[in-house]
């Protein structure tokens, strides 16, 4: 009797979950659990807790898994990155040499794809925290997210500030001592072992500092906004 009632309640609960209003393509309650998970794990995250690094001998050039936002040809000589403030105001532009002028860092980490595969690979470039320092004084204190977009606007991600300021979050321009290939995101891409590959945008065209979470290509397609590891 009790079991029967419990079973019916279970079936009813399951059906109402399936029929719940979707929040960006997944049932609202499941989106809420993603957000609860984000609250738990972002609280536990520490800047000095680093992702494991590997000897470079174990690393290989990253598999190309998606070409969203980088299908057009690009003229690397005229490429520049646009920096925007929270109200959309333009704060500056940079050529690749400006990024290369920042302190150089390297990491050999395990890249993880949300589809399930992983690969040890190498990235070289500037820490995003050093780049942020160029603008910090001109920004309000309540910046929570960074929104990055490809030059054509087709691909875009929004990443929390704690991840962006982590020492293993790089604006990468080289790997294995050579320029990153076009299909892996030349001239400049985001690289961090704290997020799945879907957040590590290739061929960055613009960077906006925001007071809220911005749009996110895969977040809008049913994935967790946070996508943290």
């Amino acid at each position: 009797m009790t079991g029967g009632v419990a079973a019916l309640a279970g079936v009813a609960g399951w059906r109402s979950l399936q029929g719940a209003d979707p929040d960006f393509r997944i049932p609202g309650p499941l989106r809420a659990v993603h957000e609860t998970n984000e609250a738990i794990w972002s609280t536990l995250m520490r800047d000095d807790h680093l992702a494991t690094e590997y000897p470079i001998s174990e690393a290989s050039v990253l598999r190309v898994n998606g070409l969203h936002g980088i299908r057009d040809d690009i003229d690397l000589d005229t490429w520049e990155i646009t920096v925007l403030g929270p109200d959309g105001e333009q704060l500056g532009t940079h050529a690749l040499d400006d990024i290369k002028a920042l302190p150089w860092h390297e990491m050999t980490i395990e890249h993880k794809c949300i589809e399930g595969w992983s690969q040890v690979t190498n990235w070289q470039g500037a820490r995003f925290s050093d780049f942020f320092a160029l603008y910090q004084d001109r920004l309000p204190d309540d910046i929570t997210h960074v929104f990055l977009q490809t030059p054509d606007g087709e691909y875009y991600v929004s990443v929390d500030m704690a991840t962006m300021r982590h020492p293993q979050t790089l604006l990468a321009y080289d790997n294995f001592g050579e320029a990153i290939s076009d299909r892996n995101g030349a001239p400049l891409r985001l690289a961090t072992p704290l997020k799945y590959g879907i957040k590590q945008i290739k061929r960055i065209g613009s960077i906006q500092f925001r007071r809220d979470q911005g749009a996110d290509y895969w977040g809008e397609r049913g994935y967790d906004w946070y996508a943290g590891l």
């Binding site: 393509r25 997944i26 499941l30 659990v33």
Partner: peptide, 14 residues
């Protein structure tokens, strides 16, 4: 159905 699969998996896991 990867996105839905993840959403269900990570919720019911709790």
């Amino acid at each position: 159905k990867l996105a839905r699969g993840l959403a269900f998996h990570l919720s019911f896991a709790w």
